[in-house]
């Protein structure tokens, strides 16, 4: 299984994502510069965290117009997997691959801490190695993670079971319905504010993010008879 980790000017979690794939799965993974227009050789694309283009205008707005995002749209339309983490989530909403928008945290502070998440949907390619309702510890590090969408969109997310992760206990940013991560209607594009790639070893404070990577690999394996 082949992974691509996109790199924009200002990405800063790309190497963490590469290392997480290497350490957890040992599968091939490439860093892919934002000017690339062909992602056809990859099975899963990770849009990593950071501050692409300095968050100019709105976080994710400029990166969403990069050449590589055209290729990400094609990749997603082909039913292949896309994960956006933190700034990557913001980029996916700006691109329109995921609904809604990530606003400034309601308290206006940047939060960098371990957060507790509840796994709401284990029927996705990204979460099938978790138990439904399982509470996992995954770090967050963001100033703009306050998920917002209009009521019709929220109703749709609920009806289609697209809310994948919610904050458990304290909501660190004011997001609607305590949303921490959502997927698209087809279930092959996931966006989340917390950083699973930073939680792949006990020495990092938590290894709860590992199951995301093993879920992805398992899904791919089942599909490709590996």
């Amino acid at each position: 299984m082949r992974f691509a980790v996109l790199v924009f000017p200002g990405s800063n979690c790309d190497i963490d994502a590469v290392k997480a794939v290497e350490d957890v799965l040992g599968e091939p993974v490439d860093s892919v510069w934002h000017t690339e227009t062909d992602l056809s050789q990859y099975d899963c694309v990770i849009v990593p965290g950071g501050f692409s283009y300095g968050d100019y205008l709105r976080s994710g707005a400029v990166a969403s117009l990069s050449p590589v995002m055209g290729a990400v749209k094609e990749h997603a339309a082909a039913g292949k997997l896309v994960i956006g983490i933190c700034n990557g989530f913001q980029i996916l909403t700006e691109t329109g691959l995921l609904p809604g928008v990530l606003r400034h945290n309601d308290h206006l502070q940047f939060r960098c801490e371990i957060s507790e998440l509840r796994v709401e949907n284990t029927d996705t390619a990204f979460t099938n190695d978790y138990e439904k309702g399982q509470v996992i510890r995954i770090p967050i590090a963001h100033g703009e993670g306050n998920y917002f969408a209009d009521q019709a969109t929220i109703d749709q997310l609920k009806a289609n079971n697209q809310i994948v992760f919610t904050y458990h206990g304290t909501n660190p940013n004011g997001s609607i319905e305590n949303i921490a991560g959502i997927c698209n209607e087809q279930g092959n594009v996931l966006g989340m504010m917390p950083h699973p790639e930073r939680a792949v070893h006990e020495l990092l404070g938590s290894a709860d993010g590992k199951a995301m990577f093993t879920s992805i690999f398992r899904t791919w394996g089942e599909k490709h008879g590996a």
């Binding site: 205008l57 709105r58 707005a61 117009l65 700006e94 809604g100 928008v101 606003r103 917002f148 969408a149 209009d150």
Partner: peptide
Amino acid sequence: KLLANTVI
């Protein structure tokens, strides 16, 4: 297309 995010 770019200058405003009409969701909000």
